[in-house]
Design a protein around this nucleic acid. Structure first.
Lengths: 183, 183
DNA sequence: AACGATACGGAGACAGTCTCCGTTTGGCAA
DNA sequence: TTGCCAAACGGAGACTGTCTCCGTATCGTT
């Protein structure tokens, strides 16, 4: 890639991160182009669809999710505490950008989605936490990893769109934990 | 209301029901106006916001939800079977129109929403089912009705947007049921 | 320095939302 | 019936956001 093209691409992603965080994933793309000091054509050449830009912006979140999973696994307490710690971290991550939770969770399991690579990273982190619990015999039989990541993502999506706080999210995640764990 | 106004309003709702069912709740309103044989101005006078039109269209669904709850309560089997029957019926209702589940569940608990009246009806039906189970002592302590209707709505929203079938939805609802019931 | 490939930018086509206002219509009162 | 006017209509067009096309500029190589 030509040096000027790389520079423009980087600036677009950087600006988009800020705008998306503030205004959500439906923010006008032409405005991002303007703030990045490039024409709309340049933005659309680098990112043919909005989802491609979202994918680039989410690299930052994907970089954090695995250390989150590690922290949850190392969390003190029984399986329920560790699972809840993971759920809470994951919801917090997904609600970092308004509109992210619904998009990510919708794309989960869809290989053709432009954000499939990020979904894979999130799903992988979730699987690591669940594998740990499953090895301890704490998980109910028949519970699938993809189901769980969709359920938690669903909670995150509702929380995001309804602007729910931790006091409303916490009890919902507890229901999920009780449904996932033997008990 | 003048007779011609009432006639136009009814035709708009009727046409909107068909278009929404086919194209989802984001379908162009001007197209609905055109198909109903009225100008855009007429549509927007009757329904200042899209949500107001959605509210009118959903009257049909709201009329059905209570008999669904009755059927679930009368369902043969234990608490788990009855709760699952209700969850499945509710998800089916919410996914009858693409885009409905997310909107309804997002508005749940928000008095100011234009579709608040419909949310109240759905929430009321859910509460009736849960009250029955709670009276039998089948429910876990601390589980709130609003939480449950949001969780099931979240599943419906993800199922709607990801085009999931019953084989993917069923297991998720089982996790919810296990999290809601004593077990 | 010259040149060709690569990338840029912004005008503008297009789609959907929503409003404003001149025109029409329904229903009541004389 | 007729006349009146409040109520309702409709559609042109302003506005916003998406996305493309193509003449122009720039990069990096020879």
């Amino acid at each position: 890639m030509r040096a000027d093209a790389q520079r423009n691409r980087d600036r677009i992603v950087e600006v988009a991160r800020g705008v998306f965080k503030e205004k959500g994933y439906d923010a006008p793309l032409d405005e991002i182009a303007r703030l990045a000091g490039v024409g709309p054509g340049t933005l659309y050449r680098h990112f043919p669809a909005r989802e491609n830009l979202i994918d680039a912006v989410q690299q930052e979140l994907a970089d954090r999710v695995n250390s989150m999973a590690d922290k949850a696994i190392a969390h003190e307490g029984g399986p329920r505490e560790r699972l809840l710690a993971w759920f809470e971290q994951y919801v917090e991550l997904l609600t970092a950008h308004p509109g992210a939770a619904a998009r990510v969770t919708t794309a989960m399991g869809d290989e053709a989605s432009p954000i499939a690579s990020k979904c894979k990273i999130y799903a992988g982190a979730n699987t690591r936490v669940l594998a740990e619990l499953r090895a301890e015999g704490a998980m109910r039989d028949g519970v699938d990893d993809l189901q769980v990541v969709r359920l938690v993502g669903g909670v995150a999506a509702i929380a995001d769109q309804s602007r729910l706080g931790p006091e409303a999210i916490g009890p919902m995640l507890e229901v999920l934990a009780d449904g996932v764990l033997k008990g």
